[in-house]
Computed example of a mutant assay.
Amino acid sequence: MSTALQWVKSTYSSSEGGQCVEVATAPDVIHIRDSKRPEGTTLQVSPTTWTTFTTALK
């Protein structure tokens, strides 16, 4: 049985839409998608890769 992913939009995103990224975490993979195209392609990266990326943004 699989559970649905819980997608979260960045707190930096406004409520007016725009260009937003949504992220859903799972134990072994981080899912990333465009909020304008939720049924579109998703990018999947390891938690280590995601941490490295978000740390570099700070």
Rank of each mutant, 00 (worst) to 15 (best):
M1V: 13
M1R: 08
M1F: 10
S2E: 11
T3M: 12
A4E: 12
Q6F: 05
Q6R: 12
W7S: 07
W7C: 01
V8N: 10
T11D: 07
Y12N: 09
Y12L: 12
S13K: 04
S14G: 15
E16A: 15
E16D: 13
G17Q: 00
G17D: 03
G17L: 02
G18D: 09
G18K: 12
G18M: 11
Q19L: 02
C20D: 02
V21D: 01
V21P: 01
V21R: 01
V21H: 00
E22C: 03
V23E: 02
A24H: 03
T25Q: 03
A26P: 01
A26T: 14
A26S: 14
P27E: 15
P27Q: 14
P27M: 09
D28F: 14
V29Y: 09
H31V: 01
H31E: 03
H31P: 04
I32D: 00
R33K: 06
R33N: 03
K36T: 07
K36I: 02
K36F: 02
K36Y: 01
P38A: 11
P38V: 12
E39L: 11
E39V: 09
E39T: 13
G40H: 03
T41M: 08
T41G: 06
T42I: 04
T42A: 00
T42F: 01
L43S: 08
L43P: 05
L43I: 15
Q44A: 14
Q44T: 14
Q44S: 13
V45R: 10
V45H: 10
S46H: 13
P47W: 13
T48W: 07
T48N: 14
T48C: 10
T48Q: 15
T49H: 07
W50V: 07
W50P: 03
W50Y: 10
W50D: 01
W50L: 04
T51K: 11
F53Y: 12
T54I: 15
T54R: 13
T54L: 07
T55S: 10
T55K: 10
T55E: 09
L57P: 00
L57S: 01
K58T: 08
K58E: 05
